[in-house]
């Protein structure tokens, strides 16, 4: 459907002129202007809202009866809960428990956001670096603040590995600092790039299906295979983002 739209939108006249990036375009649904800021409710905002509604529905509707023996949907909610809880416990220990609601919200938001992107015609809000970077910077600033609150100035020792000779301090601190500061960038870029490339590739290859006529069966098969792969990537990248957040949290709570 999205292919057809983009083909219609851009392929005026002769031949198909496919734009695999068209799917990432944002357009306002409810224009809102606050001073100089454009805070319009967009298609991106719409899919974020849908994600929140889906997650809330999944977590609250089947659990209303508080059944001891879960139904199918309640099982899914519980599996999601247990998976996230285990992820946090294994990487950040018991002290990480306090941040479970945040990690759970983060993981479920990214997971549903990524998976929504596989619905034809939908919008993938996680394919925008502004979104992924905002989440990454929250994790980065949050864990840094937790580190300083928990360890005070001792948290600075984090940048100087124990037992290293003192003369190597300038170099080591520099390297550690760079590696620490690159965390949010790598976190944001990894998710953004995976979503962008996957979806763009899918769109590009799908475009050939129309162009090649009967031979289009080859890119069609490839599209099916890549779609399957994209499901894996969607889950995996949400998981990677969440588990790295847990590991950073562990660093802040327990240092090295």
């Amino acid at each position: 459907m999205a292919e057809a739209q983009s083909a219609n939108g851009h392929g005026g006249g002769g031949g198909f002129e496919l734009d695999p990036l068209h799917q990432f375009e944002i357009h306002a649904i409810v224009p809102i202007q606050v001073g100089d800021l454009n805070l319009s409710y967009t298609n991106s905002s719409l899919w974020m809202t849908i994600a929140v509604i889906l997650i809330t529905a999944l977590m609250t509707l089947p659990t209303r009866g508080r059944a001891l023996i879960p139904g199918r949907i309640q099982s899914i909610a519980e599996v999601l809960y247990e998976t996230t809880a285990n992820m946090l416990r294994e990487s950040a220990g018991r002290e990480g428990r306090a941040y479970f609601p945040f990690i759970f919200s983060l993981f479920s938001f990214l997971l549903v956001g990524n998976l929504q992107g596989l619905i034809p015609g939908s919008f993938t809000f996680t394919s925008h670096i502004v979104v992924t970077f905002s989440l990454a910077i929250v994790v980065f600033l949050g864990t840094t603040a937790i580190g300083f609150i928990k360890h005070g100035p001792h948290f600075l020792k984090f940048f100087m590995p124990e037992g290293a000779p003192i003369w190597s301090a300038p170099l080591l601190v520099f390297i550690e600092l760079i590696s620490y500061l690159s965390r949010p960038v790598s976190l944001a870029l990894r998710l953004f790039a995976n979503m962008l490339v996957g979806h763009a590739l899918l769109k590009t290859i799908a475009g050939f299906v129309f162009v090649l006529g009967i031979a289009g069966i080859v890119p069609l098969a490839a599209t099916v295979a890549i779609t399957a792969l994209e499901f894996l990537v969607a889950v995996l990248q949400a998981y990677v983002f969440a588990i790295l957040s847990c590991i950073y949290l562990n660093d802040a709570l327990h240092m090295h």
Binding site: L37, S44, V52, I55
Partner: peptide, 24 residues
Amino acid sequence: WFASQIFWLVVTFVVLYLLMSRIA
């Protein structure tokens, strides 16, 4: 669209966080 995305991300994520931590 940067401002709009960040604004609505904050709004939706905070709502999600509250719903999850308070109820779900």
